[in-house]
């Protein structure tokens, strides 16, 4: 009886693992494809049957210099080498947005969580209600405004509309509601000013939520294609998604170089993901905050 029960559990476990592993294959194979295809030429990428290991020729042949695809990916279609500019722009925009989002969301969330001022609920509701306004619905007016104030084709133009997120304010407020007030009062007695308390007590003691929020905001901008398409028409302001979109546009673009480009563009995110994965998975913290 007991043995039979164990056997049943085992069978169930095996099926569980089979299902889970099949899904792993599904999520992983396109990434492996990208990696291996970035070392192939178009003929090999579209060959039947597809061979997962790039041919040796690629690495040894004298006619095809080592890393041809990567060189092409970096040179771009017009040979203007703007890949690194695009990478730099993407990093600048994403990092700046992450920093401003964290700072201002924390400041506002702190004000809302720890001070009882008149109209506090109105302020909170007003900020929350902006979550109902998707960017896609206001991109046309943002485009017109940006054009009229002269921020078109500038880095600030790329950054400013995403400098703060309402979700960030919400998350920081929920987190800081549980922040011990005695801590704050003690610092007041010690003579710290209100802003000083925020900088020296509140921020340093909120690192997990700051990391989660910062990464979320970084990723959103790293992934942003639509706004740069509207705001950054000059070559020198292109971000990586725009660069790849432009690179993929040409009918003649070879698939190998395209995959090399995609691979290079993903490296920073891979590094971030594998070093800080717990904050990525924590990006799903809606539920914890919901409990607050």
């Amino acid at each position: 009886m007991n043995n039979q029960f164990v056997g049943k559990v085992k069978a169930g476990e095996i099926i569980t693992y089979i299902v889970l592993i099949l899904l792993v294959l599904f999520t992983i194979f396109p990434i492996l494809f990208m990696l291996t295809a970035s070392f192939m030429d178009a003929k090999q990428i579209l060959a039947m049957p597809f061979k997962w290991i790039p041919s040796k020729e690629y690495f040894t042949s004298s006619s095809r210099t080592f890393m041809t695809n990567f060189v092409k990916a970096i040179r771009g279609n017009n040979n203007n080498n703007i890949f690194f500019t695009a990478m730099l722009n993407s990093l600048l925009v994403a990092i700046t947005c992450a920093v401003t989002t964290v700072f201002f969301s924390a400041l506002c969330g702190y004000g809302l969580a720890k001070f009882r001022f008149k109209g506090r609920n109105v302020v909170f509701m007003a900020i929350m209600s902006t979550m109902m306004i998707p960017f896609e619905a206001i991109m046309i007016p943002l485009y017109m405004v940006t054009r009229s104030v002269g921020l078109m084709n500038t880095l600030p133009g790329l950054i400013v509309p995403f400098a703060i997120s309402a979700f960030g304010v919400f998350q920081m407020r929920q987190y800081l509601l549980t922040f011990p007030s005695e801590f704050l009062d003690a610092s007041r007695v010690d003579g710290l000013r209100e802003f000083g308390i925020f900088l020296r007590i509140v921020l340093p003691n909120s690192t997990p939520v700051i990391a989660t929020l910062g990464i979320l905001s970084f990723r959103n901008q790293w992934d942003n294609l639509l706004w740069p398409m509207l705001c950054a028409q000059a070559e020198r302001l292109k971000t990586l998604p725009l660069y790849i979109a432009g690179f993929a546009e040409e009918k003649q673009t070879d698939e190998g170089a395209l995959m090399a480009c995609a691979f290079l563009a993903s490296i920073p995110m891979f590094i971030l993901f594998f070093t800080l994965s717990k904050y990525f998975l924590g990006g799903a913290a809606v539920f914890e905050s919901r409990k607050g």
């Binding site: 999520t27 396109p30 990434i31 992934d223 979109a245 993929a248 395209l258 995959m259 993903s266």
Partner: peptide, 20 residues
């Protein structure tokens, strides 16, 4: 982690891989 990796890639990269 394995299921989450695709979410790390940008949409542009994802679409490009699959289109090929």
């Amino acid at each position: 982690l394995s299921y989450y990796i695709p979410a790390v890639l940008s949409s542009v990269v994802a679409a490009t891989i699959w289109r090929i």
